[in-house]
Amino acid sequence: MELDGPIRDWLSRHALPGRRIARTETLTGGYSNDNVLLVTDGGERYVLRRYLRRNSCAVEAALARRLDGIVPVAEVVYADPDGGQAGEPVLLSRFVPGEPLSRALTTRPAHEAADLGRAAGEALAAIGRVGFAYPGFFDESLSPTHLEPTAGLAAFVDDNLANGNARDLLSAAERDRLLDIAGAYEPLLAGVAGARQLVHSDYNPKNIMVRGTAVVAVLDWEFAFSSTPLFDVGNMLRFESGYPPRFAAGFVSGFERGGGELPPGWRQISAGLDLFALADLLARPSDSRYFQKSLAHIRERLDQRGPEQPNLL
């Protein structure tokens, strides 16, 4: 792909002075960002991150510095959070060789699944060792906003159902059922309110790079905040049934071995916390990458619960 003039000028003047970009390649991006592989004429590889909807450049750059030596992350080379130099917010980091865990789980021998799970669990435990003064969502200096991330699930689900495309794709009975479930979770989530550990908030195989059975980088920190690691446990286990056998058990084992704490009822708590993310996905355009998958997941879980079973996903 061709780089815009202002960004190419920013690279040559500020981010990579003295280096010439010999090749570019579009990488898989997310709903809120776009990623481009840059290869210099000397063979060095970098990733240029452009922010399409949500400017989390300052937060991601600050987290990369904070996590150095604690959690494997891509090294940030240069960042322009306000776009004053590049014309838009951009972040340049070193490319981390490896493969996404999502690919490894589909191509590796089955016996590696447990080891890959343990490595992902241990990396998550390391993330949780980073603490903050209080829970909340980060400003540009990584100061949490004091807004409790575990509170208000039913209202959050209701708002996303009312304003998103799921309103037209879920039946009235399905919407009512989902709201009942969100309300039933709230007393459980109150038990983890006040936690103030680092949460990645999109911790799943597509954002974890591995070499062999070791995690070499955790990517995409744009949604990170301060709360309980059970948000990330729920995210990872959302599609547990689709992983190779023993991966999920390895993940849980690795998380505990790395020092992560799983309180009584952690499976229901983590599933309830993950409903925040699922509701947010349902508010996105119906042709976005994960909308249909999230919708199908919610319907599947609703169908699994009969009237005699607890009113929880």
Results as ranks from 00 to 15, higher is better:
133 A>F: 02
249 A>Y: 03
203 Y>A: 00
265 G>K: 03
257 R>I: 03
198 L>A: 03
99 E>C: 04
88 E>W: 06
227 S>Y: 07
168 D>G: 06
60 E>D: 12
189 L>H: 04
41 D>L: 07
77 V>H: 06
275 L>E: 03
182 A>R: 04
98 G>D: 01
137 F>P: 02
106 T>C: 00
5 G>F: 05
49 R>Y: 06
32 S>R: 07
299 R>H: 03
287 D>H: 06
255 F>K: 05
280 D>E: 12
62 A>D: 05
205 P>S: 09
172 A>I: 13
55 N>P: 10
113 A>F: 00
72 P>F: 00
163 N>Y: 07
107 T>A: 15
102 S>E: 11
183 G>Q: 10
219 L>Y: 08
200 H>E: 03
123 A>S: 14
59 V>D: 08
208 I>Q: 02
129 R>G: 11
240 E>W: 01
183 G>F: 01
129 R>M: 06
110 A>P: 01
257 R>P: 00
135 P>Q: 10
213 T>W: 02
20 R>C: 01
114 A>I: 03
258 G>N: 11
241 S>F: 01
104 A>N: 00
173 A>S: 13
261 E>L: 13
303 D>V: 03
262 L>T: 05
65 R>G: 10
107 T>W: 04
252 V>Y: 02
174 E>Q: 15
29 G>C: 09
103 R>M: 05
302 L>I: 12
279 A>K: 03
231 F>I: 02
232 D>W: 06
111 H>M: 00
89 P>H: 10
81 P>G: 11
309 Q>M: 11
98 G>V: 08
84 G>N: 12
128 G>Q: 09
108 R>K: 09
85 Q>W: 13
311 N>C: 09
102 S>N: 05
39 V>Q: 13
302 L>N: 10
122 E>R: 15
306 G>K: 11
134 Y>V: 05
293 K>R: 14
157 V>Y: 05
16 L>N: 15
47 V>P: 10
12 S>T: 13
252 V>K: 01
127 I>A: 01
89 P>K: 10
132 F>R: 09
224 A>Y: 11
310 P>Q: 13
250 G>L: 05
235 N>D: 12
250 G>S: 05
297 H>E: 14
106 T>R: 14
68 D>Y: 02
117 G>W: 04
109 P>Y: 01
32 S>Y: 08
78 Y>D: 15
75 E>D: 10
29 G>I: 08
2 E>C: 00
168 D>F: 14
176 D>Q: 13
268 Q>N: 11
44 E>H: 13
289 R>C: 00
77 V>W: 07
264 P>K: 01
3 L>R: 13
50 R>H: 05
164 G>F: 07
207 N>C: 02
234 G>F: 07
4 D>P: 10
237 L>Y: 00
24 T>Y: 12
234 G>L: 10
99 E>A: 14
100 P>R: 14
282 L>I: 01
170 L>F: 15
170 L>W: 11
148 E>V: 09
144 P>F: 08
85 Q>M: 14
90 V>I: 15
21 I>P: 09
230 L>T: 02
143 S>K: 10
225 F>I: 14
58 A>T: 14
68 D>F: 00
276 F>H: 06
186 E>C: 08
197 Q>F: 04
83 G>R: 11
272 G>Q: 01
93 S>P: 00
125 A>F: 05
295 L>Y: 03
122 E>L: 04
135 P>C: 10
147 L>S: 08
237 L>M: 14
122 E>S: 13
195 A>Q: 08
120 A>W: 04
